[in-house]
Design a binder for these strands. Sequence first.
DNA 1: GCGACGCGTGGAAACGATTACATCGCCTTA
DNA 2: TAAGGCGATGTAATCGTTTCCACGCGTCGC
Lengths: 335, 335
Amino acid sequence: MASIKDVAALAGVSVATVSRVLNAHPGVRPGTRTKVLHAVSELGYRPNGVARSLRTHQTRTLGLVIGDVLNPFFTELARSVEDAARSRGYSVIIGNADEQPALQDHHVRTLLDRRIDGLLVSPTDGDVGALRDAVETGIPVVFVDRWLHGVDVPVVRADGRRAVHRLVAHLHALGHRRLAIITGPAATSTSTERVGAFREALRAFGLALPAEYVAQGDFQTASGRQAAAAFLDLPEPPEVVFATDNLMALGVMEELRSRGLRVPRDMALAAFDDIPWFLHTDPPLTAIAQPTADLGHSAVQVLTDLAEGRGAGSVTLSARLTARRSCGEDEGSRR
Amino acid sequence: MASIKDVAALAGVSVATVSRVLNAHPGVRPGTRTKVLHAVSELGYRPNGVARSLRTHQTRTLGLVIGDVLNPFFTELARSVEDAARSRGYSVIIGNADEQPALQDHHVRTLLDRRIDGLLVSPTDGDVGALRDAVETGIPVVFVDRWLHGVDVPVVRADGRRAVHRLVAHLHALGHRRLAIITGPAATSTSTERVGAFREALRAFGLALPAEYVAQGDFQTASGRQAAAAFLDLPEPPEVVFATDNLMALGVMEELRSRGLRVPRDMALAAFDDIPWFLHTDPPLTAIAQPTADLGHSAVQVLTDLAEGRGAGSVTLSARLTARRSCGEDEGSRR
DNA sequence: GCGACGCGTGGAAACGATTACATCGCCTTA
DNA sequence: TAAGGCGATGTAATCGTTTCCACGCGTCGC
């Protein structure tokens, strides 16, 4: 593969001059310029990004470490992050942590080794060694969606408290009184926020949240299914289950279906995170929708601001409730 | 950030020695070795991957360019690719082409500039300038799922012909005679294969495929919806629609729902690509499932074999039919 | 007792770019 | 006419590694 030296030789100039025309530096005579350009296209020359990065100390690459790519929420987040990054001239390397701290650590570490310009992470619970190291090395880090206590970096997220409150009101209005929740891993911020808001809202409506109505999940399908099974085996099963993410809601549906039960007749269901498929499930699922694309864009905004030396702070957007039929009949929602 | 020089200085050895212990070269005295290791952990030193890549001419990075990350098939593919790559010590950079040749070109170009060790692509139709350049530069390229005529690289894919034939047999057995299809972009190989197999199977059953029963889509939701609308507006609409990917099937469901029609009563529906959500749609969707994870693993296998100088050829796996209720009642599938 | 050999280590040249600094005409100006 | 300045270009250092080669020294065989 041709290098800058080959171009210089062919154009009959020095490498410095080639570099100058390639980087649009002023003060290159038009004639020289075209000579160089000719040589470039003649050789099909493309600058070696690795060499450039070594010299300039920037890779124009952002890292994104997420809990689970297969979760449509994260997929969409990743997509919007990539879009925003590209429009600013950055590439992004996605690390899929699969909700495992060890894998998250691995990804953060490799990204750091690659000297990315900034790191976007939706942290999983647990050991955060690499993450803390990252912050300490001074590389820009921004949390998106989830965050970690004690790690002081900007957070871009959607506040779900109000939407959860609306959801509970909706459920209450439909006559439900026994509400259960499936949480995420204990230490993920989103999970604690959602559970907290749920508990608070229940209290506001004078409802109890017995311990057996709180199941701990891990944001994955299987755990939703197990939680549903446990609820169903209770002497007095809940009337509604609120799954704090979409995959666990899917798990609940799987369990209900396998027992021949129907939503919402036998058990109502609502989820955090709205996705296109929820419109077409049987029945369409009531969900709390996050402004996912905005989340991704803002996160990149904040991160690149940091990476390019402009200051930047946290951003909080808000989520909203989309009521469908999975919690029971509302006015006119059935056609 | 500490460099190898700092480590060398602290350990009182030369950089060459440090490099040797870091790369597990033989012939370093145990004492020296521990001195170096001490210095490394003292400084929290991590080798600079960029410099290393420049020197060794390998980045331990693979590129993956796909049609659409939001398509669950590709999401799963990306995930399995990443898994397989990681287990072999590679990272992967995903480029989302959004089914646009120009974007695909952009990604291929940037990946090449980053000097990735190998490129996995599920090519979109159209201009393939960058792709051809890539092949010409000699960098290992492997097609996965889709491929391009006239570009001679290994292809890892699932053969859907047999499964499509089974699907048609299934539909025929259920009494359907007016079958329609929604294709992908004309020049994607998967689309032509699927359409070809469909047409052939119809012929085998003595059924016609009138031109108005063939709608051209682009593998995205909206086009599925438009196609469904066109079919429904026909004087004699088809009894079944076969969408050649899952997002277009979603579009068909959207259109039917918006018109107050039901599957399969008013129109039956089958899709290529099976995904977890299809179990829970209303009704569960009949689909042709690809061995997605195997596809990803094989693709990485082939690509790394190429990248590491071992020869490698194409791989063809096969897809299979998963019949559910969206095409009408079968024996015992309704509980 | 001396050359050959091997082992552990260091010095320095790459890799391919960017960029500070030097150089060299040539034009302007006093 | 000579000095100064400026615009265009070249030279070389540098980024942080890996790796080839050389070197010093102890051991072995003759």
